[in-house]
Write a protein that binds this DNA or RNA. Structure first.
Length: 424
RNA sequence: GUGGGCGUAGCUCAGUCGGUAGAGUGCAAGAUUGUGAUUCUUGUUGUCGUGGGUUCGAUCCCCAUCGUCCACCCCA
């Protein structure tokens, strides 16, 4: 035997047996966002690397070490997209979707990050996301949150909690960063190795550390909340008010800092304790400066994304989605020359009843094994065409799910009979 | 990138204190010579992850490597 070539590490085949869960997620998502008036956008999987460097941030882990990048013939350095927002903004600017307009968009696609694989964390994964443009108020952030909440409800998912925070404007964050840095430098000896590194890269992240030895120092650190400018404070208060008024539960998590550089004002995460270390199911926020940063006219923007694989894991554990039967009718054919006639009858049924799902048995096999497959297919009835039926120009209808006697009828009557059965 | 657990039949796993393997399930055939999901009988599958070392002999011990899972990190 030759060496087998296997899938790339961290990437996965999504097999037929799991597909019903994926379909449930993707179908109900599409239905949901369209009901909210969002339009779909699809962008290429590959972009110029510079797009992600400029949007996500030069010193983030994603850009520094997790992108699949390569030099294209011709000299451009390209990357598989590690997330969806940058591409959507790029496409919006490029196609004039964001100039003096409001947009509500959604997407579904593969993302790529070269991380060490783990539960709920893969090198190719899939995100559903929504991005909105041209709306500066907290009302749109509230809508995004309501949309996600409704999605969990539709899917029947439980144990997902909303955490929100505000990062203020870029300017206030800059001021706060200095205050925080001053504090942290006073406590250098208490910082662990990771935190010392973050001091240079992303000091706000230090507040999110899980290290128990640092909790006291973190508790006592100056809070961004206390250093917000008036506009930022009002914006956040407005969001909380809308959420409260609508009975949306949430937790203000002052340590919540998203990893991507482009966020400002509101950030939020939906988290669960049921997925091990990968607790974030959905995350997003406002990113007003990004459009301008990528060369568009300044404008507001807010959105979120969620990982389909993580939802699949939760659904499999919590909701027990039943696969839909593969067929309504299974066509059994045994004996010589039955195939020709059988295919013809099946095609006639398809012409007349386009919604009927008919599995025609292929590949031969005994009568017994064909009926076994008919049963497994979930079909309600089996059509049986053997040599004796062929001789008489008849066909048998066997009911697989009801205690009803088998019917033998003229082939010419098959269409009417099947119509009558499915209309019952 | 760092640390730990695990790689045996299509799937889930047992096993050999070192003498080249077994159960359940699945699949196939029959009991029922044209009738499924139950039952019974029979049959079926493996370079025991890969490469090297120790040994008369390795699936088992040792080393390396790859994969996988979990945690750190990071994040959806």
């Amino acid at each position: 035997m030759v060496d087998q070539i296997k899938v790339i590490r961290g990437m996965h085949d999504i097999l037929p047996a799991q597909m019903h869960v994926w379909h449930q997620i993707e179908d109900s998502w599409r239905h949901l966002v369209e009901n909210y008036g969002y339009q779909q956008i699809r962008t290429p999987v590959l972009e110029k690397t510079a797009l992600f460097r400029r949007s996500i941030g030069e010193v983030t882990d994603i850009v520094e070490k997790e992108m699949y990048s390569f030099d294209d013939i011709g000299g451009d350095n390209l990357s598989l997209r590690p997330e969806g927002t940058a591409s959507v903004v790029r496409a919006g600017i490029e196609n004039g979707l964001l100039v003096n307009q409001q947009q509500k968009l959604w997407y579904n696609g593969s993302m790529f990050r070269r991380e060490r694989p783990q539960k709920g964390r893969y090198r190719q994964f899939h995100q559903l996301g929504a991005e909105t443009f041209g709306m500066p108020g907290a009302d749109i952030e509230a809508e995004l949150i309501f949309m996600a909440a409704r999605f969990w409800k539709k899917l029947g998912l439980q144990h997902i909690e909303l955490q929100i925070n505000t990062l203020g404007t870029a300017e206030t964050r800059l001021v706060y960063k200095e205050i925080l840095l001053a504090y942290l430098r006073e406590h250098l000896s208490e910082l662990d190795e990771d935190s010392l590194r973050r001091l240079e890269t992303n000091p706000l992240r230090i507040l999110d550390s899980k290290n128990p030895d640092m909790q006291g120092m973190i508790e006592a650190a100056p809070q961004l909340m206390d250093h917000l400018d008036q506009q930022s404070a009002e914006h956040f208060a407005e969001l909380c008010e809308i959420l409260d008024y609508n009975g949306q539960a949430y937790q203000v998590n002052k340590r919540l800092v998203r990893g991507l550089d482009y966020y400002s004002h509101t950030v939020f995460e939906w988290v669960t304790s049921t997925l091990g270390a990968q607790g974030t199911v959905c995350a997003g926020g406002r990113y007003d400066s990004l459009v301008e940063q990528l060369g568009g006219k300044p404008g507001s923007a807010a959105g979120f994304a969620m990982g389909i694989e993580r939802l699949v894991l939760m659904l499999e554990e919590q909701a027990k989605v039943q696969p839909a039967p593969q067929a309504d009718v299974y066509f059994v054919m045994v004996g010589e020359n039955t195939v020709k006639t059988g295919q013809k009858l099946a095609e006639q049924l398809r012409d007349a009843l386009p919604d009927l799902r008919i599995s025609v048995h292929s590949g031969g096999g005994s009568f017994k094994s064909q009926l076994k497959k008919a049963d497994k297919s979930g079909a309600v009835i089996a059509l049986i065409l053997g040599e004796s039926e062929l001789q008489k120009s008849t066909i048998n209808i066997k009911f697989l799910r009801q205690e009803k006697p088998q019917l033998e009828l003229e082939q010419a009557q098959l269409l009417d009979k099947i119509s009558a059965i499915i209309n019952e």
